[in-house]
Design a protein around this nucleic acid. Structure first.
Ligand SMILES: [Mn+2]
Ligand SMILES: [Mn+2]
Ligand SMILES: [Zn+2]
Ligand SMILES: [Zn+2]
Lengths: 140, 140
DNA sequence: AATATAAATGCTACCAAATTGCATTAATAA
DNA sequence: TTATTAATGCAATTTGGTAGCATTTATATT
């Protein structure tokens, strides 16, 4: 009775319930995708994977409500579109994101924290985001 | 005979000449704007400042060729559009960018270098970009 | 189980940022 | 001065994302 025997759907529906989000098929399928993915995913990734089962605006609205609830976080990797990944407890503090120049995937590095820098006098720091470009471990 | 007595246009035209770019009025005006600005500027900033003297595609193409030559660098501050700033010699190594939550301007911090982080095994780092959000010194 | 209600969905139309093809114009070299 | 080549303007197009509104669905209540 390890974690993998727990059906994914139960996890997903429980997550939605605990955030007071109605369990619609769009939300269940999109959140499942996000949970299964090892890297950040975009609207286009979702749309390809789900084969246009849901309207564009539904997908975007779903992503936005997940983000508002803190279930996922947005990653801007300079690709022109926003990507998302589920927010795991351990990675709540600001972590680094890594974009592979070869496979174009962007990964969360939850164990790599963003170092504090000290800005010039008068500049007050609220939050920061660090994007690293390079070659990921699957491409090197 | 200090630096400020040198007419800007001479600087600009010399910069263009040294990069083998034809000295067109679009390039001269756009590069002048970039050189005068204390913060990064977007296509819209340029378009407002220049009062639609130049076509959108001309402005974008101008920015792209400046970037290719290394005269300017692009900054992605999550605002939806790309911003640019001239690349000064001293700031060639990767420096931090600062986006003010109040005035919405984004600044280069040429003296604030991006700290090296060590990525997990197998990830090879090529370059990195660090964006800080907060309150700038003119707004605090 | 039937129903009420509020929220989510699917359209369609729209917006903003940026790019492209192509004919015309301007900068530079000869 | 002319030839060559690059830059420009224009209109159309692409891409990522949002908004209004009628319809449908999930959930709570009876
Ligand atoms: Mn992440
Ligand atoms: Mn900069
Ligand atoms: Zn890779
Ligand atoms: Zn400010």
């Amino acid at each position: 009775m390890n974690a993998e025997t727990i059906p994914m759907d139960k996890n997903v529906e429980e997550m939605l319930r605990s955030h007071r989000l109605k369990r619609t098929s769009a939300r269940i399928e999109i959140l499942s995708l996000l949970l299964e993915s090892s890297h950040t995913i975009s609207y286009n990734d979702i749309s390809e994977e789900l084969g246009d089962n849901f309207d564009k605006s539904t997908v975007y609205r779903t992503l936005n409500s997940f983000e508002e609830k803190g279930i996922i976080h947005a990653v801007n990797d300079g690709s022109g579109g926003i990507k998302y990944a589920v927010t795991k407890q351990e990675s709540e503090d600001a972590h680094v994101h890594f974009k592979c120049d070869s496979c174009e995937q962007t990964y969360c590095l939850p164990d790599t924290k963003i170092p504090r820098v000290h800005a010039p006098d008068g500049f007050i720091i609220n939050r920061s985001s660090l994007l690293i470009n390079g070659t990921c471990k699957y491409c090197s």
